[in-house]
Design a protein around this nucleic acid. Structure first.
Lengths: 187, 187
DNA sequence: GTCTATAAGAAGATAGAC
DNA sequence: GTCTATCTTCTTATAGAC
């Protein structure tokens, strides 16, 4: 709560995003965020009138990132199965943080799910972006049950992220990625 | 924080267990637990010197239950694959609560994982009981990689529980159980 | 915009009477 | 064992000066 700090909304949001991911939303105080940014609580409350308001901005930010990522993937990987593999690849490239902090989407949804329903809806949208994107691909692949298939892929990815997080086990995460990719090849 | 209440440790633990499951540990206050039990905070603090102490008792309780359950399953289902199916069956019979509150083990581990390391170790033991029990079965089935196989089954089960919880989707949970059972048949 | 100061409440835990 | 009362700390949020 010292230092100077040019505190644009974006700057605060980015730092809050990181803290909320690594510590959890309820376990992160606004004082901590302000401290990390280098401003005072009072100043932070000028930019965001409430803690929930801050989380909304964080989630909105994540949603924007996800949309951009999916567009990029659509552009980079024309083939349907390549898109699916790219999705799995995300688990591999993020293995370090997943094993330490879990999946940012999964953790946040679990945390908000028990109460705080209005915010949960926002957090839920993150999942739905991936799900709808995946479903589109399964349609391309000729599946009638594209929704079920896309959710199944999310189930495997979330299960892999969750268990490798709980066991702090990179090897497990890699093995599960292998299995998911085998599954993609087999369909 | 009114009413009379014969407050044995067991009674408090059972009620706390339920609240912690449905609301989450950090979102459950000791005042709430005391209220649900029908005693005062002061009294609760007589039985459990701290909130962490209370959670330890809750987890110890769960561990005892898990051990008893696994022994029962060992007794009731002599065949290896029947044991695995019984494990999956748990997801089906608990679908109502899983869809509403998630998996009690998974949620607690995620919640404690971000900080509170001493308690996480305790919570982690719950998972390990299942994992070791499953691994034993895969050994029976002749698998060299029994550990990997047992964790894979946990991955699928946890993924199914998590996603069906996030989507509040019983149909998804059932479909994923079907897939897991198909997998068991195929190995 | 950014600060200091402070309000207002919640939560965990303790002291002491009964 | 169980209660009432109190303490302390943490947390969110506001008020007002600069």
């Amino acid at each position: 709560m010292t230092q100077k700090g040019n505190a644009s909304r974006e700057r605060i949001t980015a730092i809050a995003n990181n803290l909320i991911y690594t510590k959890g939303y309820n376990q992160t105080s606004v004082a901590e965020v302000a401290d990390a940014v280098g401003i005072t609580k009072g100043n932070l409350n000028y930019h965001f009138r409430s803690k929930d308001d801050l989380l909304q901005a964080v989630i909105a930010n994540r949603i924007t990132t996800i949309i951009a990522t999916l567009q990029q993937w659509d552009h980079d990987y024309p083939q349907a199965k390549s898109k699916l593999k790219r999705f799995v690849q995300m688990l591999r490239s993020e293995e370090e943080s997943i094993v330490r902090y879990g999946c940012p989407m999964g953790s946040l949804n679990v945390e908000l799910g028990k109460d705080q329903l209005p915010l949960k809806d926002k957090a839920w949208q993150m999942f739905d972006l991936y799900q709808k994107w995946l479903a589109k691909i399964f349609v391309q692949l000729g599946y009638k049950n594209s929704k079920s298939m896309s959710k199944h892929l999310l189930v495997m990815a979330q299960g892999a992220a969750l268990m490798s997080y709980i066991y702090s086990d990179k090897k497990l995460l890699r093995e599960e990625c292998d299995r998911i990719e085998e599954w993609i090849d087999s369909i």
